[in-house]
Amino acid sequence: MNNNAYNINIFSGGAELLFDNKRHYNIDLPNKDTWKLGDLLIWLRDNLLSERPELFIQNNSVRPGILVLVNDSDWELMVSSDLWYLICSLCQILCKYAPCP
């Protein structure tokens, strides 16, 4: 299996609105030594995002209100040790988005 195949599982809670209203993506990341979560989020913005990129990434991180889960865990548990947590293959990334009022 390709080491760079990721199952980006769901954009839900409103985040899917920024991604062409689709909740599931299977993606192939280009070859690179280490893929960190931060790299992946930027890659998502540049390659999958369909509209309003400023509602996804701001100041080099996700916009406040976007919650990221990796394998069903809050990524804020990981960023404390390494801001750009190294992702393992076949991670499920889930972005939850709390929309504006």
Partner: peptide
Amino acid sequence: CGKNAVLK
């Protein structure tokens, strides 16, 4: 409780 945390 011995389990892994899921959120902060």
